[in-house]
Amino acid sequence: MRLPAWLAQHLAALRALLVFTVLLGLAYPLLFVGVGRIPGLSDKASGSMVTAGSTLIGQSFGDDPRYFQSRPSAGDHDPTATGASNLGPESVVDTLGEDGSPSLLTQVCTRSLAVGKLEGVDGSRPYCTADGVGAVLAVFHADGFTGPVTRVVSVNQTATPFQTTYQGVRVEPAIPGEDYRALGGVITPIRGTAPANPVVPADAVTASGSGLDPHISPAYASLQVPRVARERGLPEDRVRELIDEHTTGRALGFMGEPGVNVLELNLALDGA
């Protein structure tokens, strides 16, 4: 007996649902579980868990001077809050006041000073003030964007500005809540006298896209060697050997940059 068209369509849809449920809900996941058990992939598939955490996820070491420190994290190394700050190169003006937030430039400046203090090196870098905020001025001209300078404001400082004058005009501190760009000020970062190549590497002051990068650059690891060796009573050469042992090269020999797995390195230090 021929089934009604509507019933035949519903039965065909039901069969398709059952087939795709088996294929995509059971067979497909089981296939990848099996692939994850292949030697060489099992560590990554299982999360590479160790007693102290996972070697695939960056974590904080609490500024303990005995340990190598990870790069910054926009989510405070919380795996459930992975993500970036979404701040880009144009983020140079802080939001001042009780509910304010620092710009990306000020975050970089603050971190650089903190790393410099921890490692006993010069933490200064271009476009940063001595007190660790973005060295940025709002410059007002008589004719909008041109003409003589009539007013200058240090937009990221509410107290003493990082420089007293600009082109002969006294620099004012900022007033919280004022939008100097909207008032006609030209936002002007000031390079300052910091070296073009800062002592503190870029990955020491910037977070990764995920906020959970488990690696740091060999340059940042090398910067931390004197402190770690001193705190642990180890020769610096021995600490550098451990860095070399836990440094991975470029993917396929040409993609990306070498990296040092911080957790593995710290575990090796504990073992040493």
Rank of each mutant, 00 (worst) to 15 (best):
residue 126 P to Q: 14
residue 130 A to L: 13
residue 131 D to K: 15
residue 131 D to G: 01
residue 135 A to T: 01
residue 135 A to C: 02
residue 137 L to N: 06
residue 141 H to V: 06
residue 142 A to R: 14
residue 145 F to W: 08
residue 148 P to G: 12
residue 149 V to P: 13
residue 150 T to K: 13
residue 158 T to W: 09
residue 165 T to N: 14
residue 166 Y to I: 07
residue 168 G to A: 10
residue 168 G to K: 06
residue 170 R to P: 01
residue 172 E to C: 10
residue 173 P to D: 07
residue 176 P to F: 07
residue 176 P to N: 08
residue 177 G to M: 07
residue 179 D to H: 12
residue 185 G to L: 05
residue 190 I to M: 13
residue 191 R to L: 01
residue 195 P to F: 10
residue 199 V to C: 04
residue 199 V to I: 14
residue 201 P to S: 02
residue 203 D to M: 10
residue 204 A to I: 08
residue 204 A to L: 10
residue 205 V to Y: 05
residue 205 V to K: 12
residue 209 G to N: 04
residue 212 L to P: 05
residue 213 D to R: 02
residue 214 P to M: 03
residue 215 H to K: 13
residue 215 H to P: 04
residue 224 Q to W: 06
residue 230 R to K: 15
residue 234 L to N: 01
residue 234 L to R: 02
residue 236 E to V: 00
residue 238 R to M: 13
residue 238 R to P: 00
residue 242 L to C: 05
residue 243 I to Q: 07
residue 245 E to S: 06
residue 246 H to W: 04
residue 247 T to C: 05
residue 250 R to A: 15
residue 250 R to G: 07
residue 254 F to A: 11
residue 255 M to S: 14
residue 265 L to D: 11
residue 267 L to W: 00
residue 267 L to Y: 00
residue 268 A to K: 03
residue 269 L to H: 05
